[in-house]
Amino acid sequence: MNEQTLIGLVIAIIEFGTLLYLAALGELIAEKAGVLNLGVEGMMAFGGMAAFWAGVETGNPWIALVVAAIAGTALAAVHAVISVVLGADQVVSGLALTILGLAMAAFLGKDLVSKPVGTQFRELDLGPLSDIPWIGETLFSMSALSWLALALGVATWFVFTRTSTGLALRAVGESAATADAAGLPVVRTRVIAVMIGGALAGMSGAYLTLLLAPGWSEGTTAGRGWIAVALVIFGAWRPGRVLIGALLFGGLIALEPRLQTFGVEISPILLSMLPYLLTIGVLILLSIRSRNRPSAAPAAIGQTWRREER
């Protein structure tokens, strides 16, 4: 293997990592507020389709990104209204959202399938920094969206641990009754968290259709949304660990087409199961660890909250 293949691999890891991290970060925010949203795959597809459409119409990738975020938010709002405001089951509502998002993307995106790419995100040229061997070609050449994802990750970490807003959001996800007694708006916090999650999933979709695999076709999300759900667990609900997980799982995806180049005799398909199996493993370890202490998962996740049922 030569240097170029290795650099190609690192770039692919960053790209898949960015895709997964954006979506996983959104799911993390929703789950930290106590709402499981299994609709990531649907929001991602819908956002990706919307971004591609906006790209074709406007030719501006940033407008497309905003459109994708709005599309993701709109879908997430359905989940928020059904499961948070009206209090229906989060699992059913989230799964239905995935079905709805995938189907809406397929339905509305029917005529986009054959369309040429209107616009796309490109690698960022940071001048002399990008000329540094290795680091310049990979880290300092990655797209603005990767930097954005990283910045959002740091911002999430900061908000969670260093601000009253984050404290309130985490309290809502741990014990809604406690948060309510402290005068915090439980429903509003959860709705906003779910919608932010939707925006990030939509942006992840935009990254997919405007950079990673420019174009639109049904099934282009290929289960990446489920990996994002898995990542939140794999990262034990921490923004930093989720980033590591995103790079790891992104790395596994990036390796798939390259295995043969590296002379490894394992089927890439079998390799692609690893993220899911690793997540199951982590879930089991977390539950063994939480025998004598509270679980790493937000305690109120999946639970409907209504004030009268205290």
Binding site: V229, Y276, T279, I280
Partner: peptide, 8 residues
């Protein structure tokens, strides 16, 4: 989560 993951 475990049943969901095993789908994939």
């Amino acid at each position: 989560i475990t049943t969901l993951m095993l789908n994939e």
